[in-house]
Amino acid sequence: MGSYAVFLRGINVGGINIKMADLREALKAAGFADARTLLASGNVVLASPLDADAVKRECEKCLRDTFGYDAWVVVLESARLSDLVAACPYPEDDKTTHSYITLSSDTGVLDELDAAGAALEENEQERLGPEALAWLAPAGGTLDSPFSKISAKAKFKAATTTRNLRTLLKVRDAAAELAASGA
């Protein structure tokens, strides 16, 4: 039984509103009996005998069938999430900057986003792996940061999801707790 972190793309913004209790119940009905949600931004931890690709397919199908939208998720094994968080070179808590990790299950899209960000004059990013890219934004100016503006373009936005490093630490800890419980 594997422990996974599932990150939903684009919910509770832009008209796709899903209550976390409803999300939890839908995933439980789809066979993920121990699904747990964290915060209100589409972060889930769950255990499954399926591999990560199959968990992704089943979660997306569940979301499409239950909530009626073209769902897209990133699924990471809990150990991989832990590795990515540990590899992030940026601080988890800093008064002048915010640390983010952009996740994608489409390596080509992340490669293109990485190259676009690297071309910026202010380049505060580091590739953590084929599925993750860490970057910094000034406190209070995330949406106005050059990298944020690039990542919001439709060609990247549809295949990526971004989380604050503090959020990923909470998801990492919840996934590790789930794995330790033997679920």
Rank of each mutant, 00 (worst) to 15 (best):
H98S: 15
D34A: 07
I16P: 02
A30C: 05
E124N: 14
T66H: 10
S151V: 07
A139P: 05
S99G: 04
S148W: 10
A30T: 05
R9K: 09
G141L: 08
A116D: 13
K56W: 08
L143N: 11
L178M: 03
G15I: 07
S78A: 15
A86N: 12
A137E: 03
L8K: 04
G108Q: 07
D93S: 15
A180C: 09
A33Q: 14
T102N: 06
R36S: 07
E112F: 12
E131R: 06
K28W: 13
L8G: 03
A29Y: 04
V55T: 05
V44N: 10
H98D: 15
Q125K: 13
V55G: 13
K170I: 03
N17F: 10
T96M: 15
M20Y: 09
F7S: 07
A30P: 03
A87M: 12
S105V: 10
L136S: 01
I18F: 00
L178S: 04
E77R: 14
T96N: 15
M20E: 05
L46R: 01
L120Q: 08
S105W: 11
A179V: 07
T97L: 11
L8W: 02
V75K: 00
G68N: 09
R163E: 04
V74I: 11
G182W: 01
L169H: 14
M1A: 14
R163Y: 01
F7A: 03
T66I: 07
L128D: 06
A158L: 14
T96R: 15
A139Q: 06
A30E: 09
G182I: 08
L81V: 06
K157I: 08
F32Y: 07
A71N: 02
G141Q: 07
R163H: 02
C59E: 13
T160A: 05
E92L: 11
D34Y: 00
D111W: 07
R163Q: 01
P91K: 03
S82H: 14
G10C: 12
N164G: 08
R36K: 09
M1S: 13
A35N: 01
S48L: 08
L136H: 05
T161F: 03
V13I: 12
N164T: 01
P130I: 05
S151L: 09
A71W: 01
D94Y: 07
E25I: 12
A71T: 01
E112V: 13
L8R: 01
K19P: 12
L103H: 05
L27I: 02
L178R: 04
Y100R: 11
E60I: 00
E122F: 14
T37N: 00
R24T: 14
V44P: 09
M20Q: 06
R80M: 14
E177C: 03
A176G: 12
G140A: 03
W72T: 07
D144F: 14
A29H: 11
A86P: 09
L50I: 03
Y69H: 00
L128Q: 01
G129D: 06
K149E: 11
N43M: 04
T142L: 11
A26S: 10
V73L: 00
A159W: 12
L133K: 05
E121A: 12
A21F: 12
D83H: 12
D70G: 00
G182F: 08
A180P: 06
A47T: 10
L168I: 04
R172A: 13
G31C: 04
D106G: 03
A175E: 11
A176Q: 13
A119R: 09
Y4A: 10
G108N: 05
D106P: 06
V75I: 00
L50C: 06
G129N: 02
T97Q: 12
